[in-house]
Simulated assay, not measured.
Amino acid sequence: MTVNTTSAVATALPALVDSHCHVVFSAFEPDLDAVAQRWRDAGVVSLLHACVEPSQIAPIRALADRFPELRYSVGVHPLDSQSWDAGTQSVLRQAALDDERVVAIGELGLDLFRDSNLQSQLLVLGPQLDLAVELDLPVIIHCRDAAAPMLQELRQRQAKGRCPRGVMHCWGGTPQEMEAFLELGLYISFSGTVTFAKAFDTHLCAQQVPADRYLVETDCPFLAPVPRRGKRNEPAFVASVANRVAELRGETLEQVAADSTANAVRLFGLPGPSALNSV
């Protein structure tokens, strides 16, 4: 019933991928089935659920059992570095090997906006980047006020042939920083911030990013796009993100949906829209 409704609606709407969400959070406990129906009605054919620390792995896996369009990552967020210990890399490795629905390592990265413990964050970042290379999985990179040290880390790895592919999630940097990450082979993902009136750098980046190198996401329950700013975000609202990117690029929503979905399928090894619609 629900699956048939999804297929019927998705054929009439541009197929979208929410490439970064957090529906495991308690904000969704009261109405997750209704949230899922809304994302399906909005044409969202796949979601990539990001993980911020190891205790989330089992609950996210349960969500993947519940919603067949959901894939997920395993990793430790830079602001959750206290959850890292000597056995964490092994835990992440085993979780990735145990479930083919694990399609990325992360959300990992650096955050010097909310914390200043750069060295501690680097100690957590390095083993996760190593694991991504070992398992040949892309990374989901959180980078806030930390472009310079992140670029230094990735460039050093690139020089050694040890830089994984991946995506700069919830992009908020400058066009110059974007170009540097693109040169490393990374993708750029736009969230609800692209709809904010004063996000001028993000607007420029959305206009300038190559068509084959960007994704769209919600990062829900955070950063709801205009006109829902300040309220709980949810995967269905990725359509608003895609629509704003289309406006900025002077393209149709259908074109942006086609490009961003194809890019997400390629980067994360997702089933194509037709296969996702048939699950």
Rank of each mutant, 00 (worst) to 15 (best):
P54K: 08
R71P: 03
A206N: 09
I105H: 13
A96N: 08
E247Y: 00
G269S: 09
E100S: 15
L129S: 09
L137E: 05
R144G: 09
D85Q: 15
T11Q: 15
L122V: 05
P210Y: 02
G161E: 09
I141C: 05
L151A: 11
A199G: 06
Q37R: 15
L135I: 15
R61P: 00
D259P: 01
Q158L: 07
N263C: 02
S26C: 00
V45K: 00
A242V: 03
D145S: 12
A58F: 03
P210L: 02
I60S: 00
R165E: 10
C21S: 00
A242P: 02
V209T: 08
G173V: 05
G75L: 07
F25C: 06
Q94K: 15
C163Q: 08
P221I: 12
E247D: 12
A199V: 01
C51P: 06
I140C: 10
D219Q: 03
K231V: 06
Y187Q: 02
S260R: 01
Q156I: 07
M168F: 07
R213L: 11
D212G: 03
Q89D: 11
V133F: 02
S83H: 14
G161N: 12
L215T: 01
F196V: 10
L223N: 06
C220I: 08
E177G: 07
Q119T: 14
R244I: 00
F67Q: 11
D33I: 05
E217R: 02
R114T: 07
D65L: 14
C163H: 05
V103K: 06
C170D: 03
I188E: 00
M168P: 00
A199M: 07
R244Y: 00
Q158I: 02
A148V: 14
S189H: 01
A197I: 10
D99C: 13
E153L: 00
N117K: 12
T202W: 00
V45M: 02
